[in-house]
């Protein structure tokens, strides 16, 4: 399970799932485990603010998680996203699907 309570904007009682700085295929198995665990929790906030490097596997994982969470009626929101994460999601046409917050100023 990811670090809980990270970031001040997180709603009280919400579980927070943080993401590694290098969120790419090599580390994706670990995040897969964390997100599967997070599926049992609601509400959940995702923290993508520290992501420096990201690839398609990471975004696909987030898509699968969010879709399954929504199916269960869970609430998922974002603390924030880094510029690299936002750009990658936009490039792959996934920014809306992932309901990303506005792009942070660089």
């Amino acid at each position: 399970m990811g670090s809980k309570g990270k970031g001040g904007a997180v709603a009280a009682g919400a579980a927070c799932v943080g993401m590694p700085a290098d969120f790419r295929i090599a580390d994706v198995m670990d995040m897969h485990r964390q997100l599967r665990d997070a599926l049992n929790l609601s509400p959940v906030v995702l923290d993508g603010t520290t992501v420096d490097r990201v690839d398609t596997t990471a975004l696909q994982l987030l898509v699968a998680y969010q879709r399954d969470a929504q199916k269960r009626g869970h609430q998922v929101s974002w603390v924030g996203v880094s510029v690299p994460l936002y750009d990658a999601a936009s490039q792959l046409g996934l920014a809306q699907t992932l309901a990303l917050p506005a792009k942070p100023s660089a």
Binding site: I25, V28, M29, M31, H32, L35, R36, L39, T56, T57, Q60, L61, V63, A64, Y65, R67, D68, L92, G93
Partner: peptide
């Protein structure tokens, strides 16, 4: 894209 449980994260199931 399969369910999170069924997903092998190293495989690609997206299309564009």
């Amino acid at each position: 894209v399969p369910t999170l449980d069924a997903l092998d994260p190293t495989e690609c199931h997206l299309g564009w």
